[in-house]
C-alpha cells in the first residue's frame, strides 16, 4: 500500500474513532413483544442533537397499533393527535379507521448530558415481524434528529449535522 493511501486511511480511522459524537440512538428498552398484546414502549433518549438540548419528542406508530396511551412527563406538554389512520385496522367485521396518529411531548428541556425516558402503553399490531416507531427529536436552535429510517439503511447527516438514523424497532413474535 502506497503512502498516499495509507495517510488518508489513517486519518479516516482516526475520524471514525473521534468525529462521531455518539453511537447511541433513541431506542426501545424492550425490543421484543408478542403480537396483539399490551406493551409498554419505553423510548430512551441518550443525548441531544449535537450539544443542543432536546425540546420535543414526537412519535408515530407502526400500522395496526391500537390505543396508544402516553405517560405524562413533568415539565413537558403532552399532545395526542388523532386522525385517520394511514392504514385501517381490521379484525373480522370490525374495522377501525380513526385513532391516534402521533404523540408528542413538547416544551421541555433535556440537556445533552442528561438522560430521560418517554413511555407509551399500547396494544401491538396483529402481524408478526419488525414494527418501526419513527421518532423526531427536536432540539434547541431549530435542529432535529430524525430516528426514522428502516433497519439496514445507511445513516445520514442532516444539513445542520443532525442525525438521520434507524427508527426504534420492535420485533413482534407470533403468539406462543
Amino acid at each position: 500500500m502506497s503512502r498516499s493511501v495509507l495517510i488518508p486511511a489513517a486519518i479516516a480511522a482516526a475520524f471514525g474513532a473521534t468525529a462521531v459524537p455518539s453511537w447511541a440512538h433513541v431506542t426501545l428498552e424492550t425490543k421484543e413483544a408478542v403480537v396483539s398484546s399490551t406493551y409498554k414502549a419505553v423510548f430512551r433518549v441518550p443525548h441531544g442533537c449535537g450539544a443542543a438540548a432536546t425540546t420535543a419528542i414526537r412519535v408515530r406508530f407502526p400500522d395496526g397499533t391500537l390505543s396508544p396511551k402516553p405517560m405524562p412527563h413533568a415539565g413537558w406538554t403532552l399532545t395526542i393527535q388523532e386522525g385517520t389512520l394511514a392504514k385501517p385496522i381490521t379484525a373480522g367485521n370490525d374495522t377501525v379507521t380513526k385513532g391516534v396518529t402521533e404523540i408528542a411531548w413538547t416544551g421541555g428541556k433535556l440537556a445533552d448530558n442528561e438522560y430521560d425516558e418517554f413511555v407509551i402503553q399500547l396494544t401491538t399490531p396483529a402481524e408478526a415481524g419488525t414494527a418501526l416507531f419513527p421518532l423526531v427529536q427536536e432540539c434547541e436552535g431549530g435542529k432535529a434528529n430524525r430516528w426514522i429510517l428502516a433497519p439496514g439503511v445507511a445513516a445520514q447527516s442532516g444539513p445542520n449535522g443532525e442525525e438521520i438514523d434507524a427508527a426504534p424497532s420492535l420485533k413482534l413474535n407470533p403468539k406462543p
Binding site: 493511501v5 488518508p8 486511511a9 486519518i11 479516516a12 475520524f15 471514525g16 468525529a19 462521531v20 445520514q156 447527516s157 442532516g158 444539513p159 449535522g161
Partner: peptide
C-alpha cells in the same frame, strides 16, 4: 419537505459531508 445529501470518499478520508 427537503432533499439533502451526505457525501463520502473513503480514500480521501472524507465522510459525513452533509449538504442541503
Amino acid at each position: 419537505r427537503s432533499v439533502s445529501v451526505t457525501l463520502g470518499n473513503f480514500q480521501a478520508a472524507i465522510e459525513g459531508l452533509a449538504r442541503p
